Simulated scan of single mutants.
Amino acid sequence: MGFYLRTSLKAGPFRFNLSPSGVGVSAGVPGFRAGTGPRGNYVRVAGLGTTYFGGRAPTPTSPGSPPSMLPATHNDGIVMQELSGTPVQQLVAAHPSDLIGQIQTAAQRHLLWPWAAAAIAVLALCSAPFGLLLLVPGLPAVWWLWQRDIARRSVIVFYQVDDVPAVNYERFTTSSSFVSRVQRVWHVEAEGALNTPYQRKVNAGAAALNRRSPASMDLAGPPMLVTNIAVPSLHGKDRSMYFLPDRVIVRHGHRYAGLPYAAVNAHAQAQRFIESDTPPTDAECVGTTWQYTNKSGGPDRRFKNNRQLPIMLYGRLTVTSPDGLLMVWDFSRPDVAAALAEAIRRMR
Rank of each mutant, 00 (worst) to 15 (best):
A215E: 07
A215R: 01
A215L: 08
A215P: 06
S216R: 11
M217W: 09
M217H: 10
D218F: 10
D218I: 10
L219M: 14
A220N: 13
A220G: 12
G221A: 15
G221H: 06
P222T: 12
P222F: 05
P222R: 04
P223D: 15
M224K: 05
L225V: 11
L225W: 01
V226E: 07
V226Y: 02
V226Q: 07
V226A: 09
V226L: 07
T227S: 13
T227W: 01
T227I: 08
N228M: 10
N228S: 12
I229C: 05
I229H: 00
I229F: 03
I229Y: 00
A230H: 02
A230C: 09
A230F: 04
V231W: 00
S233D: 05
S233C: 10
L234N: 07
L234V: 01
H235S: 14
H235W: 08
H235E: 14
G236S: 12
K237M: 15
K237A: 15
K237L: 15
K237H: 13
K237N: 14
K237D: 15
D238P: 07
S240A: 08
S240K: 00
S240D: 09
S240C: 04
M241F: 09
M241W: 03
Y242T: 05
Y242C: 08
Y242H: 09
Y242W: 10
F243M: 09
F243Q: 02
F243G: 01
L244W: 00
L244Q: 03
L244G: 01
L244E: 05
P245F: 00
P245D: 06
P245R: 00
P245C: 08
D246R: 01
R247H: 04
V248D: 02
V248A: 11
V248S: 08
I249Q: 02
V250W: 03
V250F: 00
R251S: 07
R251N: 06
R251K: 11
R251L: 08
R251I: 03
H252P: 01
G253Y: 04
G253R: 05
G253W: 03
H254K: 13
H254Q: 13
H254A: 15
